[in-house]
Design a protein around this nucleic acid. Structure first.
Ligand code: FES
Ligand code: FES
Lengths: 143, 143
DNA sequence: ATATTAAAGGATATTTTTGTCCTTTATAAA
DNA sequence: TTTATAAAGGACAAAAATATCCTTTAATAT
């Protein structure tokens, strides 16, 4: 469904969003430990997220990553889009070059419903929603 | 969503199912031309489908691939399962080792709904359904 | 029987994804 | 100002997915 990179990205964003105190920073080591991901690879992903402006960073002692925007207004769809692009939102299930009503693949209509369901879910689920569930202990970021 | 291999597999199965006359055989070349896939790679995929008993084959002149079972009773889910396994039906969206209610990831509940939607769609859409739409010209297998 | 056809199978190549390592740059504390 | 810290960046490595090539096997037609 999502690339492994994208899964790490979502988990990392949720972890940072779940930290107490709005603009607390957390470092690469903390993050990759918290989400159980390879450190060096996670570093690359966090860089991508910073470039996409979903995450911000600070170098030096007490540096780390933090979220600038209100997590209530950051949706999972933005993270997925930043990492995996929008093929998941618009691509053809069977690999046709372009998904369209005019030239649909055999599963287009049924698949579109599912894809739109997924898109809707991602576009309406905020980082705050999911981070809260981690904070109250009703959901988990690893194992 | 599906691996490229799986997309080719679904397309190939649809193409064979769409041939007139129940047990008509069609060869590798026809199939890969019809679905616009690399021939040698498609051969491997067809082999997998034969091993999975979704497709049957005959060597020699006038040989080729054909479907034994009633296409009305073959569902897309079987093809996806045969090629991509069942991670798509049961795997965790965020990569937790195991998707479960007891130890859910932060998107578990919302994702489960989407995943079940997809699963339901695949389990209720038969090869006949989609092959018919190709035959009446209302859907397409390539470009 | 022999030749031809077409799938099966094995080995290998290419590309993409995932992952690591090491150096450089920016920031802050001492 | 020096040192420590932590992210950024570049080069490289490993693994997995995708793709090709060539030989072998089975079936048919001549
Ligand atoms: S054309 Fe295939 S999903 Fe729309
Ligand atoms: S635990 Fe992640 S989808 Fe169920």
């Amino acid at each position: 469904m999502f690339s492994k990179t994208c899964k790490y990205a979502i988990n990392a964003m949720i972890y940072v969003a779940s930290l107490p105190g709005g603009n607390e920073r957390s470092g690469l080591k903390d993050i990759s430990k918290a989400i159980n991901s390879p450190e060096a690879f996670t570093a690359k992903i966090l860089q991508q997220l910073v470039k996409s402006d979903l995450l911000h960073s600070m170098k030096g002692p007490n540096g780390g990553f933090y979220i600038h925007r209100d997590t209530h207004q950051i949706f999972l769809s933005e993270i997925v889009q930043a990492i995996d692009g929008d093929l998941i939102f618009t691509g053809c299930a069977l690999g046709l070059e372009k998904c369209s009503e005019d030239h649909p693949c055999p599963v287009h209509h049924k698949f579109k419903a599912v894809r739109d369901h997924l898109t809707g879910m991602l576009m309406t689920t905020s980082l705050k929603d999911v981070a809260d569930s981690v904070n109250v202990g009703s959901s988990f970021l690893k194992i």
